[in-house]
Design a protein around this nucleic acid. Structure first.
Length: 413
RNA sequence: GGAGAGAUGGCUGAGUGGUCGAAAGCGCUCCCCUGCUAAGGGAGUAAGUGCCCAAAAGGCGCUUCCCGGGUUCGAAUCCCGGUCUCUCCGCCA
């Protein structure tokens, strides 16, 4: 386990944890024995009172008081140990699966598949911010004025394209891929963020509403996964599959200057998120079908993309295995990450206490959780605009989107 | 934001200091009877968790009647704080 965590570049305090856990168990046994005794003594007091033997009852009472004292002492140290244990536990990352390549740099990531080809463009490549500005789809300047940099105003066909993509993707995931639609809150409490693993490590990346001690969600993963927090699910109901549209809010602390132009890195964006709760033994298969579901959106839109298997050092703290879906944006000549497809195994389930009952009368066990973007909007939109830019400056609308756009071209104004 | 009511097992719902993990009914499971899309009779039926056991079965405990504190030898029951739900008023997209 230590070695596996190290692959992710994280040192884990495992000896300390095991030792603490051992003493915690000892104390628990001890306190429970005391409680058992106290319970019997209390019962005896009741009996003696009823039989009218006051003196004997008083003697028992004194004994019970003593027991109570020692129980309180043990409970106190038990509580401290438990707290320390929990704190240590939160520092443990999820462990990488065997199939994950080892490494801590980008070049250790493996490209698993590519779909389609880089398109031959009707005209010279143009970055989407030029196209979007010219067609009056996005007002960057006013977004910055109203809120600040990294906040966008979609206008006209841009706003409509946004809405079309949302509806298209939701319909696609619910009707074709069988997900249940969910519309979650955009604001969550601390417990939920701890549950999915954003806290305590990544607090700086979140918008915090100090007055109410709540946070804006960085992804719908947080509210949707925590839907089943502290629940025991019926094994027969698994897998549970949700598709959720939501806004996402990310401070992107420390990301200034890199890929921040246009739609590439913004503080607020929309996304359709896919979340699954599955039986543990199925999770790696479910990961593949989840990836397929996320990919299918890009294919339906006719966009060239590739799938990357992230190496141990590059994937998230909570992940056991992670694919990234990157769509080709010919204008900026880059692959843009539009989806991260992850198996969290039991990592989130432990933190959020999400369990299932494998069979009738059996003991509950932790589920495995997975999620994928299906997919994030701004970068998708960037790829669309750059891919479907026409010679005359307009942008063609892919077939799948036409019913939602109500037109087959985004015209010049 | 103000006022009031409530929160009990899969469900309905009793329970105001000890034998209550909790009546009764419904539901569910098994059995009997009946031979038929009915009815009746009987038994069982909350969960979580620690330890023992190779494991299962099982056993010994602990915890749990919204949550957290308190009073008490002992709390579903009394006290304090909170959360949520419902009703009424106010405000509001």
């Amino acid at each position: 386990m230590r070695e596996l965590a190290r692959k992710k570049g994280i040192e884990v305090p495992i000896e300390e944890f095991l030792e603490l856990d051992r003493t915690w168990r000892e104390l628990l046994t001890e306190v429970e024995q005391c409680r058992a005794k106290l319970n019997t003594v209390s019962r005896q007091v009741g009996e003696l009172m009823r039989s009218g033997d006051r003196p004997a009852a008083d003697r028992m009472r004194a004994q019970a008081s003593g027991l109570k004292q020692s129980i309180e002492t043990i409970e106190e140290s038990l509580r401290k140990k438990d707290e320390a244990l929990r704190e240590l536990e939160l520092q443990f990352p999820n462990l990488p699966h065997d199939s994950v390549p080892e490494g801590d740099t980008e070049d250790r990531n493996q490209i698993v598949t590519e779909w389609g080809e880089k398109p031959t463009l009707a005209r010279e490549p143009r970055p989407h911010w030029d196209i979007a500005t010219e067609l009056q789809l996005v007002d960057f300047a006013r977004g910055a004025k109203v809120t600040g940099s990294g906040f966008l105003v979609f206008t006209g066909f841009g706003a409509r394209l946004q809405r079309a993509l949302i509806n298209f993707m939701l319909d696609f995931q619910t009707k074709q891929n069988g997900y249940t639609e969910v519309y979650p809150p955009y604001v969550v409490n601390r417990k939920s963020l701890v549950g999915t693993g954003q806290l305590p490590k990544f607090q700086d990346d979140l918008y915090w509403l100090e007055r109410d001690n709540l946070f804006l969600i960085p992804t719908a993963e947080v509210p949707v996964t925590n839907l089943h927090q502290d629940e025991i699910l019926d094994g027969d109901d698994l897998p549970i599959r949700y598709a959720a549209f939501s806004g996402c809010f990310r401070r992107e602390a420390g990301a200034a200057g890199s890929d921040t132009r246009g739609l590439l890195r913004v503080h607020q964006f929309d996304k359709v998120e896919l979340v699954k709760f599955v039986r543990p033994e199925t999770s790696y298969n479910e990961l593949e079908t989840l990836r397929e579901d996320a990919e299918s959106v890009l294919r339906a839109l006719g966009l060239h993309y590739r799938v990357t298997l992230m190496c141990t050092g590059e994937m998230g703290f909570s992940n056991a295995k992670q694919y990234d879906l990157e769509v080709w944006a010919p204008g900026v000549e880059k692959y843009l990450e539009v989806s991260s497809v992850s198996n969290f195994t039991d990592f989130q389930a432990r933190r959020a206490n999400i369990r299932y009952r494998p069979g009738h009368g059996e003991r509950p066990d932790f589920v495995h959780t997975l999620n994928a973007s299906g997919v994030a909007l701004p970068r998708l939109m960037a790829a669309l605009l750059e891919t479907y830019a026409q010679r005359d400056g307009s942008v063609a609308v892919p077939d799948a989107l036409q019913p939602y756009m109500g037109c087959n071209v985004i015209p010049r104004p």
